[in-house]
Amino acid sequence: MWITSCLETVKTPTVVALGNFDGVHPGHQTVIEPVWLAAQQFRATCAVGSGAIAPVPTVVTFHPHPREFFTGKRRDLLTPLAEKVAQLKPLGVAQLVRLPFDHDLSCLSPEAFVEQILVRSLAAQEISVGENFCFGHKRAGTAEDLRAIAARYDIPVHIVPMYTLDGERVSSSTIRDYLQQGLVRPAARLLGRPYMLVGDVVKGQQLGRSLGFPTANLCLPEEKFLPRLGVYAVRVWVQNEAFPNALVLPPADPARQPQPGVMNLGYRPTVDGSQRQVEVHLLDWAGDLYGKTLVVGLEAFLRAEQKFDSLDALKAQIQQDCDQARSLLTTSP
């Protein structure tokens, strides 16, 4: 996938899905689908040797998130860049354009945004957005405004209705709310997959090893959105060593089987920890994980983080956590 933040290096012409797409949940996927279909239709109908250039299926998003730009507060992401790319690839997206959201872009009128960005820079042939999409200065432009303005340039706009599941709106904010409460299964239902933490294994204090439960300490992207602090039953995939520099998320690579595990997310109050850490204990693993990338899928919230009176009490609780996780992971699909 071609990734760029510079409009001068965009591959054109394009068919464009516009939005933030944090999470790449099923609602986002319905917005992206018309882009892939348009590119496929072009290839199916364009005569060989005609000289026509096939449009590039493109997702256009904003970096930083507009809300982060206006508030000055970092907005943690369900899918940081590497995860977003890994989720977009199976959808047929060939290009990701991360528009730098700055003062100049925020001041563009809806008409100027279409003319300067979509027409001139992206050479968009078709556009797809969700029905709640807003753009331009002070979010003045609606999806219907986009359709009307783009029509002046003979560019069709697909306006995709809000996606619901069993009557519930599927949105990134709702998924965040569930995760903040430790409700990982409702979050997974809306995401269409377990919520995942992806990070490299780094050396820690090896306290878990001394207790008989060796853990892999994960270094996550700084902007990764974290769920409620506590202990989780998880499934863990070790990054495919055949493609060490290409993140492949399950189930895209069905040959990779997950390992059952327990994850602790928190400050380790029993040992007076001062920094938030993500530690994963694999229930059926023997081997060196240092330097490897782990994909950790959250399956169930087991308990909140707590401080124990002694290391023996902590050790006993960890054993209970492992037993509970094994039982849950064995009985759930």
Rank of each mutant, 00 (worst) to 15 (best):
A54F: 06
R75H: 11
T12F: 02
D321V: 05
A325V: 08
G23R: 01
A151C: 12
M162Q: 15
N264E: 12
Q40W: 01
Q275C: 06
E33F: 04
H25F: 05
T164E: 15
N264I: 04
A143N: 10
A47P: 12
C219F: 09
T215C: 11
L220P: 01
A143M: 06
T9D: 14
F70A: 13
A233D: 07
V238Y: 01
W237M: 13
L302K: 05
L81I: 09
G212S: 12
G141W: 03
E68K: 04
A246P: 02
Q277Y: 06
H65E: 03
A143H: 01
H28M: 12
S121I: 01
G204H: 07
L37G: 00
R152G: 14
G92T: 05
V35T: 04
A123E: 15
V202H: 15
N264T: 11
E305R: 09
S172L: 01
R43H: 13
P161N: 07
Q306C: 10
V15S: 03
S50K: 08
M263H: 05
V157D: 01
R326T: 13
R147E: 13
K307R: 15
C322D: 07
L96V: 09
A216I: 08
L96C: 12
E299P: 00
S50V: 10
D154I: 06
H25Q: 07
G273A: 11
L77P: 00
V295C: 13
G273D: 06
D309P: 07
Q205W: 10
D200V: 08
M196F: 01
Q205H: 15
G19D: 00
L249N: 02
E115A: 10
M162N: 09
H281E: 12
I117M: 07
Q181E: 15
E241V: 11
I149Y: 02
L220G: 02
R98G: 03
L218W: 04
L99R: 06
W237T: 08
L18K: 08
R256N: 13
W36Y: 09
M1D: 09
L282D: 07
A150T: 05
E8F: 08
Q116L: 12
L91E: 00
G273E: 08
P186C: 13
L99F: 09
Y153L: 08
T331R: 15
T61R: 03
F69Y: 15
F113N: 00
M263C: 14
E168K: 09
V60N: 02
G19Q: 03
S274I: 06
L289D: 14
R120E: 11
G167Q: 09
S106L: 10
R276N: 10
